[in-house]
Amino acid sequence: MQKPQDEIDTINNKSRRKFVRGLSLLLGGSVTTALLSGNALAVAMAHSITSVSTLNSVPTFAGKIFTLSQLKQLQRICAIVIPKSDTLGAAEVNTHGFIDNQLFHCYEQAEQDKMITLLALIDDVAKQQFSLPFFSLNDKQQYALLTELDLGINNFDEQQRTDFKSLKQLICFAYYTSEVGASQELRYLAVPGGYKGSIPYKDSDASWGSQGLYY
């Protein structure tokens, strides 16, 4: 049991950490990052980009936080939030499995519970509207339901919308720190070889997937 004072301290620590982190991002470089350079050191130190073991199939066992059916549901949500395009999407790189593991290791109980409650809510609304669990809806229905949640309209309120943003944040973190997300969807360079203040950029270019220590 956490005492109230401990809770307050935790919150203060977190906001302070966030502030100092913001500061460090600015002092320590930038949120934006690296590009390939042809230099030999960079090549020598570059990560080998191995092929990803794709987990495109439906989950077959329960996770550390989520039940098997919750994981299946989460996989569908991941697929809709960040779908496959020229590059693999969130579901194909096991974002759902990563989120389960990350929630278990790096988040508090309250945040774990929030995500479980959110999945239950999504399922409840699916059953109300379509008499089917979310997982069994077609792509269009799933997309429409999540869009309502994302906007906090119809069956969803502002708090639920906020909770879904938290889930989207987990999905984004999982995807853009994955090998596919960081190095194929975005541009990754382990060893930039130096800093250049300006290079050309156009809308079709990807931003940097490599961010040093600070993700």
Binding site: L25, L26, L27, G29, S30, V31, T32, T33, I80, V81, I82, P83, S85, G89, Y143, L146, T147, D150, L151, K165, K168, Q169, C172, F173, Y176, E185, L186, D203, D205, A206, S207, W208, Q211
Partner: peptide, 26 residues
């Protein structure tokens, strides 16, 4: 210092699917 925002700044925005993914990429 000056920096250009990446996906971390887009993730909380409204949106789903390919359009959202493309916005996160830029």
């Amino acid at each position: 210092g000056a920096y250009r925002e990446g996906w971390q700044s887009v993730q909380h925005q409204d949106g789903l699917g390919l359009e959202y993914k493309n916005k996160l990429k830029q």
